[in-house]
Amino acid sequence: MKKHILPAIKLTAVTILLFALLYPLAVWMIAQISPNKGKGDILIHHGKKYYSNIGQSFTNDEYFWSRPSAVAYNAAGSGGSNKGPSNEEYLLEVQERIDTFLLKNPAVRKEDIPVDIVTASGSGLDPNISIEAAKVQVKRISKIRAIEEPILEKLIADLTEQPLVGLFGPSKINVLKLNIALDEIQQN
């Protein structure tokens, strides 16, 4: 064992240079030529800075709501509820969210509420909702903002992100981008 200690220490030192210094440095340099210079997808709107792939909390009735979150969309941390599917307490919580949703969206039938809008995501920072979850909020927003429903439906259709190259994965919609567009309709 003794004769292996010194070479092992030296090899460790050399490989630290290689994998913990040069490798991340190389990636950092590549990041500098990427659109956002390795700072995440930044979206500037009216001089305010947002991250388009970090979800935000939308609880006000005049905005499209985002999904429930275990970390309240504070990206200083991240995580899910970690509630098991049979947990009674958890199921009551979901039932409460459904009731609240129906209360705030009286025109919506219960069987039209999609499951994602009443369940929390894994990261607590999900930037997306399903298309159904956006559509089901149209009536409420139309009433509060006095915008006609077809305009909102068109907005959703325009901002819907189709599956990757039309083939892979689900369709979705970015809540932040949707709400920014919503504010802009109002201003015009």
Binding site: G80, V115, S121, N128, E132, P170
Partner: peptide, 14 residues
């Protein structure tokens, strides 16, 4: 409710 998206608790929409 409409459960057609599957078990979304703890999952990401994307």
């Amino acid at each position: 409710i409409d459960n057609s998206l599957g078990a979304t608790e703890g999952k990401e929409i994307r």
